[in-house]
Amino acid sequence: MPKIPGLLKGLGVTLNTLKRTALDGANTVQYPHEKEAPPLRARGVIALHEDNCTSCMLCVRSCPDWCIYIEGHKELAPPRRAGGKPRQVNKLDRFDIDYALCMYCGICVEVCPFDALFWSPEYEYSEPNLADLLHDKVKLGEWMATVPEAPAYEVGAEKKGKK
């Protein structure tokens, strides 16, 4: 008998939710028709800024499931100043990320010393064929257009750390 008020309260909870959903709409979003804005710093897909990459292989070595493949070669570029000796630069031949393996840990983005990798909030790149989830450097470069501006530092954040 003492349980009956609680039982009625339970029925009230579901009935109130029913009423709220009918009057104010559901908490869910009807996905293909309307989309939620992804939150700040959402981890959708990794974009590659190819010019910044020096093929240092740090991302490849830090990747926990080895889903990044880099091949490159060295080239001689013309000297910066007249009379100098030619510079040696690394050219990317291949930069692939296999999103069938990637677990979105973001270590590669963190570890990149030259700001060549960025998070983009785009998430709609599923494929009917598993092999098509291997994004090459052209496709990774296309994601750069979707990378949002870095959010402003929090107040006082600049003071921390060494100068």
């Binding site: 939710t17 029913l18 908490n27």
Partner: peptide
């Protein structure tokens, strides 16, 4: 429908 609404979602649409 009713179960979905009681869980604050729309159900099959």
């Amino acid at each position: 429908k009713m179960m979905s609404f009681m869980q604050s979602r729309l159900g099959p649409m």
